[in-house]
Design a binder for these strands. Structure first.
Length: 464
RNA sequence: UCCCCUGUAGCUCAGUCGGUAGAGCAAGCGGCUGUUAACCGCUGGGUCGUAGGUUCGAGUCCUACCGGGGGAGCCA
């Protein structure tokens, strides 16, 4: 007998088939006529399949009547047209095998809405909810689009290291990786911790970005992308930050900033288009239950050109806006969240790409413009989430790169291999980083980043 | 890390001026000719986050700590 997913069994084409379905009970309703309706879910789609469990089943009184949310079952039966309005098909069970019970007195997920905050405390059970199921299916679709997009664009998937021995990536606080005994680490004669005796013979950390290593491969193989876990030890407590998250970082030789911005726009449009086409049921759920603006926001991303503005133009618009901002609008200062929000949510109500930022507020590797005041950086900002992509054209000129490193107090010796890329066959190149979870947030409308990753890691929280 | 809010039944919450704990949902039992957040009735369910303090008396007031949330900064 064929195994059918709930997704397949719900299609009218499945009518007439005798099949096996396996999954978890969501609810049981007992009918007046002496039989029961079971809602079975197996994660293949948001919806459940309705199972008709007749009283004639051998275990009807002993087991079926006691099924409750969370119980796992195998159902063998016939797919038939449903008499009810809510679904096209239903399964008339010939046999129901109970694999595991879920004591309703103690099982937390009863047939009732739970807050997302409470569900975080049950991260081992929350994938069984409609919301987390939908989030994970959309997250999966996004990940697939990421690979599809870059592969079709001719980018090579490169695995940059998770452990890095250079503390010079410059993108924020890092988690140390060590095998030294924290209670009694090896010491130098002077009393300092002796990392020469540590596993790697020097201090090591979890990566905060694969960019610098990505540049190594881009300047040999042309177009590459990385996609993997990334770690930031910042004490950030917001709905948009995680200590462990997934980042996509394309890097392309012979790309300038224009190419980079165009790539970012095509990339986001592709993801959004794929989700709208392939996840209509889940997206309808988000629209109805999570955020009733999310479908409009996605369609506008898919259909409309992104607004491109230089940093200087953005400052002018903000200064002329008449808005009362908590932080002053001033050329040379970084834009505050409230400024970005004004641009994306009020002024344009669409994604905005800002570029050519002041050199003093951006990283050393971003290419200096001829005005010598700005660098070829770009951020893609979207409504509600804010910065979703940060990127730049990289500085390929050795002398200027050295100048920028000195200006920011960095020791060129620590970057000898990065500088070699400019010493030997240097090329213009550019790239960006996309935070996967922020993209999932934007696409689903979920307000908190902790609800779009299976097991969120945040300061003080690494349960599960 | 800073500011603000919050912690009462399995879940969501109410609890007045400080006076001895309440509802809805869920659960258990019973009823109901195909139900769809099923419906109706009954029943059980509490160390009020933790530790101190004020008071004759604290869920309620004060202090500290812990957890959760929102905002800010950092960034993806």
């Amino acid at each position: 007998m064929d195994k059918l997913s709930v997704l397949a069994a719900r299609q009218p084409a499945a009518i007439g088939r005798r099949a096996t379905l396996q999954g978890w009970i969501r609810t049981r309703r007992d009918s007046k006529g002496g039989f029961s309706f079971l809602e079975l879910n197996d994660g293949s789609c948001l919806a459940n399949i309705q199972v008709i469990a007749d009283a004639k089943l051998a275990n009807y009184e002993s087991e079926v009547k006691h099924l409750s949310p969370g119980c796992s079952v195998t159902v063998r039966g016939d797919v038939k047209p449903s008499g009810g309005k809510e679904q096209a098909t239903e399964v008339h069970a010939a046999e129901i095998l109970v694999h595991g019970w879920a004591d309703p007195e103690s099982y937390p997920l009863q047939k009732k809405r739970h807050s997302l905050e409470k569900l975080r405390e049950w991260a081992h059970l929350r994938p069984r909810t409609n919301t987390m199921g939908a989030v994970m299916r959309v997250r999966n679709r996004i990940c697939r689009s990421i690979h599809d997009f870059f592969q079709e664009e001719g980018f090579l998937y490169v695995h940059t290291p998770i452990i890095t021995a250079s503390d010079c990536e410059g993108a924020g606080a890092m988690f140390r990786v060590t095998t030294l005994d924290p209670a009694a680490p090896a010491r130098t004669p002077a009393g300092a911790v002796d990392f020469a005796q540590d596993f790697f013979g020097k201090p090591a950390y979890l990566t905060v970005s694969g960019q610098l290593e990505g540049e190594i491969y881009a300047t040999a193989l042309g177009k590459i992308y990385t996609f993997g876990p990334t770690f930031r030890a910042e004490n950030s407590n917001t709905s948009r930050h995680l200590a462990e998250f997934w980042m996509v970082e394309p890097e392309a030789a012979f790309f300038d900033l224009e190419d980079d911005m165009a790539l970012a726009e095509r990339f986001l449009k592709r993801i959004v288009g794929d989700v709208l086409r392939d996840c209509p049921e889940d997206m309808q759920f988000f629209q109805e239950r999570i955020d009733d603006t999310v479908l409009d926001a996605l369609r506008s991303v898919a259909e409309r050109d992104f607004q491109r503005l230089s940093y200087t133009e953005a400052i002018d618009i903000l200064a002329a806006s008449g808005e009362k901002f908590e932080f002053p609008v001033q050329w040379g200062a970084d834009l505050q969240a409230e400024h970005e929000r004004y641009l994306t949510e009020k002024k344009f109500n669409a994604p905005v790409i800002l570029y050519d930022y002041p050199r003093a507020i951006k990283a050393f590797y971003m290419r200096l413009n001829d005005d010598r005041r700005t660098v070829r950086a770009m951020d893609v900002l979207v409504p509600r989430v804010g910065e979703i992509i940060g990127g730049s054209q990289r500085e390929e000129r050795l002398d200027i790169l050295l100048e920028r490193m000195h200006e920011q107090g960095l020791n060129p010796d620590d970057y000898w291999w990065y500088l070699d890329l400019r010493r030997y066959g240097t090329v213009p190149h550019a790239g960006f980083g996309l935070g996967l979870e922020r993209m999932v947030q934007f696409v689903t409308g979920m307000a908190n980043i902790r609800d779009v990753i299976p097991f969120p890691r945040t300061p003080g929280s690494a349960e599960f």
